[in-house]
Amino acid sequence: MDKTVADLATVVAGIEDGMTVMIGGFGGAGAPIELIHALIDRFRTTGHPKDLTIVNNNAGNGHVGLAALIEHGMVKKLVCSFPRSADPVVFTERYLAGRIELELVPQGTLAERIRAGGAGIPAFYTPTGYGTLLAEGKPIAEFDGRAYVQERWLKADVALVKAETADTHGNLTFRAASRNFNPLMCMASRHAVVQARRVVPAGAIDPEVVVTPGIFVQAVVEVADPQQEEDLNRANAVYPGEA
């Protein structure tokens, strides 16, 4: 078994119009910049994929990564908890012009909906959001004298994920706080695509330290020196920049 794919273009080739794509990361930590940019490259040459529903905690920052994906008009809808950033101009302009849909989800509910999607749990009850605008229209139930809101699972066609080390079976480790949503999104998507700083043979990761077991991962590509969103934004980078 070898889940390694040689290049970024091949690994994103199966992503089609209208798909739901989960993208890992919280701010720049764990954001798979190279995978996102490979998707933009494909759109620039083929016009596809478009009309994507993107699930991410944020709405991008500056003009790289997720913000660049939105700037290219590839995103129909965003499911996120916090569509603000130091430089959220790309999403903000489109949202205020009515050109992109937003489903706002409390951060913990977003994480649990993704986890539930990966775990085969179609709905669950949470105290979060009870009595607020974000619970409107959702079923409410009382358990042990307290009211809870029913929330539904969230699943995706594809996840784009950044890991530190992957082996050829798709076992993953992450670095520091770049773990965030990445392991959950691997679980909740039919096809989890991972960029890893290092791809190693099966057996080279101690099973005791595997964070995401390979069963949740379908494809792995090595990106040895990944870009970091914060560094790109400090340099005022724009993707793809001048041709």
Binding site: G28, G108, R175, F181, N182, Q228
Partner: peptide
């Protein structure tokens, strides 16, 4: 280290005994 940030997206450091976990465990 931009992999080591807090919820405000500010860079932080670790104290002895720190741990990392994913978002579902965090919440």
């Amino acid at each position: 280290d931009w992999d080591l940030i807090n919820a405000g997206k500010r860079a932080v450091t670790l104290k002895p005994g720190a741990s990392f976990f994913h978002h579902a465990d965090s919440f």
